[in-house]
């Protein structure tokens, strides 16, 4: 998907490919409380971009604003450019249909639906046009997460926390997104399971999925990041490659416990 920028001088006409996701001066308030004070960042195709920060710095607000989740007394200013088109303020289901899949904080699987139904719901918008491809995708998910295959007919509420996280990621992948938003995938999981989850994210990244990851496990997140941002009380205070931030003394002190 490319679009041609018309320059005034014909000879300067060129193909311009906007970044997959570009956040421009994003400001969000909840009533009188400011959550984001003007955030700018970019996610290019194929990248893993990580936003680290302490609890309540505004990461989840960024994620919910990108995917259009409306909350009480929330005011949004600024732009969320997806392929160069401003999608801020659009309805959540329409944003999902553009190819943004959001794995929400706390996983939010449908506990009373079976594992398979959860995954099928991930492919809800593809069902009309690409019905034939869905069965294959379902098998691919079960290949990648065998534990989900074993429990496909069980209500998802009976899965363990780690299995639910796999399900939430699998469900998001069923829509074949252009951009995967992962909000705190390690939240509430045992260390061993967290390592599994990061292994999966690494695999997805290697397979070419573009990922925006919000994480408090700064160490592990920065290791898999192509680029990373540090968010502090609604502002981006540092940015760089994952390796750069891992070495940064301020990051070490505040987030890596060194």
């Amino acid at each position: 998907m490319t679009y041609t920028q018309e320059w005034p001088i014909e000879t300067m006409q060129e193909q311009y490919e906007p970044p997959l996701l570009e956040i421009v001066d994003l400001r969000v308030w909840y009533g009188a409380a400011t959550a984001l004070k003007g955030v700018d960042f970019i996610v290019e195709r194929g990248e893993v971009v990580v936003i680290i920060g302490s609890n309540g710095a505004g990461q989840t607000t960024i994620m919910k604003t990108i995917s259009g989740v409306v909350e009480l007394r929330k005011t949004v200013e600024g732009q969320v450019l997806f392929y160069g088109t401003d999608i801020a303020g659009q309805q959540t289901h329409k944003i999902q249909q553009l190819g943004i899949s959001h794995v929400p904080e706390g996983r939010r699987i449908f506990p009373e639906s079976t594992v398979e139904e959860n995954l099928m719901l991930g492919a809800y918008t593809r069902f009309k046009r690409e019905r034939g491809a869905i069965a294959g995708d379902l098998d691919a998910i079960f290949d990648r997460f065998p534990v989900l295959g074993e429990r496909r007919k069980r209500p998802a509420g009976y899965l363990s926390g780690g299995e639910q996280q796999m399900l939430a990621i699998g469900r998001a992948l069923m829509s074949r997104p252009f951009l995967l938003l992962l909000d705190e995938p390690s939240l509430g999981l045992a260390p061993l399971i967290v390592a599994d989850v990061f292994e999966i994210i690494k695999e997805l990244a290697a397979g070419g999925t573009t990922i925006l990851l919000v994480e408090q496990m700064a160490n592990m997140a920065l290791e898999i990041a192509d680029r990373a941002y540090v968010l502090e009380t609604g502002e981006i205070t540092l940015e760089g490659t994952g390796a750069q931030l891992l070495e940064d003394p301020r990051v070490k002190e505040a987030y890596l416990g060194a």
Binding site: Q96, R108, S113, L121, Y124
Partner: peptide
Amino acid sequence: MLGRAFHAVSQDPTTASLMGINT
């Protein structure tokens, strides 16, 4: 699929809309 969407909305409308369902 419509039935599954109904169940999804009944369990968690916000997450249902993240699936692309027009709640």
